[in-house]
Every structure is written in C-alpha cells, then in structure tokens.
Design a protein around this nucleic acid. Sequence first.
DNA 1: AATCTTTATGTAAATCCTGACATATGGTAC
DNA 2: GTACCATATGTCAGGATTTACATAAAGATT
Lengths: 189, 189
Amino acid sequence: MTTLGYAILGLLSREDLSGYDLTQRMKGPVGYFWSARHSQIYPELAKLEDGGYVTHRVIEQKERPDKKVYGITDEGLEALKIWVTQPPIPRPIRDELTLKTYSVWLADPEEATRLFREEELRHEEQLAHYGEIRAWMEREWREDLTSTDSPEFASYATLMRGISYEREYAEWCRWMADSIEGGKSLETT
Amino acid sequence: MTTLGYAILGLLSREDLSGYDLTQRMKGPVGYFWSARHSQIYPELAKLEDGGYVTHRVIEQKERPDKKVYGITDEGLEALKIWVTQPPIPRPIRDELTLKTYSVWLADPEEATRLFREEELRHEEQLAHYGEIRAWMEREWREDLTSTDSPEFASYATLMRGISYEREYAEWCRWMADSIEGGKSLETT
DNA sequence: AATCTTTATGTAAATCCTGACATATGGTAC
DNA sequence: GTACCATATGTCAGGATTTACATAAAGATT
C-alpha cells in the first residue's frame, strides 16, 4: 500500500467521494502535506478497489457525466487505523530554496536579497491564508475542537502544522534577506 | 538540467570531488534539504559531463581503486550562478507524519501520544546535533561568517534552516502530544 | 457561433528516485 | 583464514510522480 493510498483512505473515512471530488479535496488540509493529480488518483483508486480497501457505485447523472462514488470498506478502515500510529520511515527532505542557499555565496547580493524577500512574501501570504481558515475553524467548530477524536480536530491539527511551517519558513527567509542586505550574518543571530 | 545536477555543481564549485566523495558530502549541509544515493549521482555526473558542465580526470591509486575526480567548468559555474537566484517552482510538500495527523481522530489516544512523543524526540535529537555543528562553525569560522559571499556563510545559512525547521517540527509534535494526552486542543493554543 | 470553464474519467510517456545487484582492492577484527 | 568494512564505480528493475494527451456534456461568456 502506498502513502497516496492512505491519503485517499483518510478522505474516504470521512465521506464517500468520487475521483474528481478527491482531486478537489487535495487542495484542502490533506493536500497541505501530501497531494496528487487526478492522473495519479484514478489508477490508485483502482488499486485500492483491487485490494478490497474501497468499493464504488456508479451514480448516473443527467446534464453531467456519470460518476463513480467510492466508499471505504471495513478492511480499508482497519488498514488506515493501523497505519496512522505507525512511525513514518524518515524520508529525505527536498527543498529547492534551501539548496540554492548552499550556493548563495556565488550570487549577486541584490538579486539574492530580492529572492529571499519574494519567498518571504510567498510564505507570509500562505500564512495569512491559513490564518483565515484557522479563524473560521475556531468559530465554526468551537465544540468539536475540544475533543481530539473528531475529524475536525484532525483537520485543525494539520492546519496548525501548516501555520507553524509557514511561519518558520517566512522568518528564516527574512533572516536571510536581512543578513545579505546588511552584508553580515552573526550580528542578527 | 535537474535540481540534483545543481546540487552537485554546488559542491563542485567549492572543491573538486569524486562520485564517491559527492555521495559522502550528501550527509553534510547540502544533503539536509536535497540528497541522493550513489546510484543517482554517477549517472548524473555523466549527464553533466555530456552537457559540458563538469570534466573529470582519472586519479590512479595504488592500494585503492582508481577514481574519477570531477571539476566544474566555466559553463557549469555560469549555469549555477544563474540558477541560484531564480525563484524555485513551488513543489508540493510531502510529509507523512502530518498526513497521518489528518486521520489521527481514528487512532487510540495513547498510541497517538506515543507516536508524537517519539517524533518529537527524533527532531529534538536532530536539533541537538545541528546545534553542535553550529557551535563548531561559529568557533572555527568566526570571521568567514561576517561576510555573506563566503561558502562558509552559505553552509551556515543552510544549517540555520535545518535548526529552524527541526525546532518548529519538535514544537508542533509536543503540542500534538500534549493536546491528545490532555484530550483537549484549544486550551493550549 | 465560437470559446472557455466546470464537471467527469481515464491513458501514456518521461523523469525521478530507491533498493538491489555487481565488482574490485586492501585493511582490520575475530 | 575469514568475514566485514571503507574505498571506488557502476547498472537495473520497479515504483512514484508529473505533464501531456484524450474524450464528453452542459453552461457561461464573448
């Protein structure tokens, strides 16, 4: 079973969805830290069905193409539950901006400053976007968030990782830009 | 040209290295945010040489197998310089633990707490390791770190991203474990 | 009338990456 | 003496992922 398979099962454990719906959901909290295109989702659904983790029924629609709505099976839910608390195999992190940083000494300081200011802005914008979603969740899900066994808490916790990640990234970008602009590094440490 | 190609050029812009040396260097600062196995490095070196970005000379060794030492060409250095300040194409983040978090509501709270405590420890250990390297760099490279156009600063800046990343991750893991253990989430926000 | 967007599901080619296989030398540990 | 480890360079199979190709129907826009 692939990680993408578990991502899909995680969505289907909350509600029945079509391949198209799943693709859309990838733009939400799940997709913040694991995403896929429809070209990967459709074959993966076929594999999941092969393995008995999901089943589908065809919904015939007038004025729209027919769709296949997938639901998780008992076996699927069981497999998902086991996977959740199993320690993940550490995978190498791939971050192109930080890799560029390793060769930043070769760059024109002004261009490098521009790069890190731009990236800082990108992450600040993402942070602001997440902040809005957080405010919405805290308003709409006030009670659900007091118990950690609700899907709402799980979505909230995933979002919190996103907020924390983006804040850290933006701060480091700012430190980088400031360091290069000032021409010094250790003074701001 | 691939990102791995630029990672290799980044290393060769500092010193001439063999494929084996490059594989070892992947355990250092470059590899914190982009790494590869030797099975990927040897073919990539061949491609880089094909493109005229690197050249090699064979060093014959007694008591050891011969080696090919690679050096960056003017074209390679030029390509690297251009790449450094070009904004990276945003790629989806893949983080299995945060994906598991999306389905944590299905898990036994005790097992979930154990998972996040374990992961917190992993990141705290990595943080401690980076901290030692940082202390060493600040001791050994005191003067080099005052100018941002030195390779030492670039290594230091990459390490700082590692420190910042691991601290953020550890803190979020702690928040997760505390939330699940306490059974509540919003009180600790 | 033509084009674009949304819904809806798929396939195919190419690339990236991991893990395993393969070979060779010399030193060290048992 | 034998097994393992570090040095040293490669290939290959398979899986993961992206980009592009492919089709189709209805509604909105120009």
